[in-house]
């Protein structure tokens, strides 16, 4: 059994998105319940959030943007930059705690205290651009973690795999010129789903060409197509890249019962792709991997999805 960390903090529930928003605190309550009911919680190493050194957030985001985010939160305005991004006065602090918690987990993995971890954070991050909030995301959690691993720990190759049903535009744009961070994303085809980026011809820029890989999947597809993509596209690419650390942008919204997408992946399908990712991390990264929650809105399915996901990390 692996030493698997579980980042969860009641303060993550304080990011209040109002009454009609899919990205609710109930999602994390469902996650926690799923792990508790299955008895997995007692096998995990529980971790609480800490505040980060702001220099790591500034390693990805413009300081002007960070200040604006803080000011808007403090002012009591209920949306930041777009109606999608519902906030409350605590959101800025909670977004910092999401980053801080994740960086603390990354440190523990690098120091060998943990083998791997699942970070049940809110708000999510993969849509957040250097200077723009988008799609319920404010700070790009995984991008900040990747920069931290590069700069603090000197890692040369970091692999980010993103199976949220929406393309992680922010993560892609932050690293598209960087050949040391491979961004792999599978998502619903951008002509049918938010945010309208992540087309197959987006392959990186400058020195980073070839280190961004987008695999858009057509509406209605499910386990068979996802498994095929992970086995025949993701696996060879990550095997060749041989990342020293794998970060997973974990979104469960491609699930057939999730009404945020038109995809038909089943609970078993998510386990199958997670097994492939874990094998890559075990082979090339010494098992060093960190799964960070992005989307996934079916409160009925989240408990089982997360339980299976975490069990794979534990048994890897």
């Amino acid at each position: 059994m692996k030493k698997t960390g579980f980042l969860y903090d009641e303060r993550y529930l304080l990011h209040d998105t109002g009454p009609y928003h899919p990205e609710t605190p109930d999602r994390l309550i469902a996650v926690h319940m799923g792990l508790d009911k299955t008895g997995l919680l007692s096998r995990l190493i529980p971790l609480k959030a800490v505040y980060p050194d702001m220099k790591w957030i500034e390693a990805v985001h413009d300081t002007e943007y960070i200040q604006k985010f803080e000011t808007i939160c403090c002012s009591g305005i209920s949306a930041f930059e777009c109606e999608d991004n519902q906030i409350c006065c605590q959101t800025f602090g909670i977004a910092k705690l999401a980053v801080g918690g994740i960086l603390d987990v990354a440190r523990r993995i690098m120091e060998g205290e943990l083998d791997n971890a699942f970070c049940a954070v809110r708000p999510p991050g993969h849509h957040a651009e250097v200077d723009k909030a988008m799609g319920f995301c404010y700070f790009n959690n995984v991008a900040i973690a990747a920069r931290y691993l590069q700069q603090q720990w000197g890692l040369k190759r970091i692999g980010i795999v993103d199976f949220d049903v929406h393309h992680g535009n922010g993560t892609q744009h932050i690293f598209e010129q960087d050949p040391t961070v491979f961004y792999y994303s599978i998502h619903e085809h951008p002509s049918f789903a938010f945010p309208g980026t992540g087309r197959a011809f987006e392959k990186g820029a400058g020195e980073g060409v070839g280190y961004t890989r987008n695999y858009p999947v057509l509406p209605g597809q499910g386990d068979k197509e996802y498994l095929d993509v992970f086995q025949n596209d993701f696996l060879p690419l990550f095997t060749e890249f041989a990342p020293e650390f794998v970060i997973i942008s974990t979104g469960f919204d491609a699930h057939v019962d999730d009404d945020m997408s038109d995809m038909c992946v089943t609970t078993q399908g998510f386990s199958d792709i997670m097994n492939i990712i874990v094998n890559v991390a075990n082979t090339h990264s010494g098992g060093r991997m960190m799964s960070v929650l992005e989307g996934g809105y079916s409160l009925r399915r989240l408990p089982e999805l997360v339980a299976n996901h975490v069990e794979i990390l534990l048994n890897s």
Partner: peptide, 25 residues
């Protein structure tokens, strides 16, 4: 201009409109 379409989709269906399967667009 939103990611948040599940609620409006349900509302339109309740109004009696048919939302076409994306593969038939």
């Amino acid at each position: 201009l939103t990611q948040n379409v599940s609620k409006i989709k349900k509302k339109l269906e309740n109004m009696g409109y048919t939302l076409l399967n994306p593969m038939d667009w």
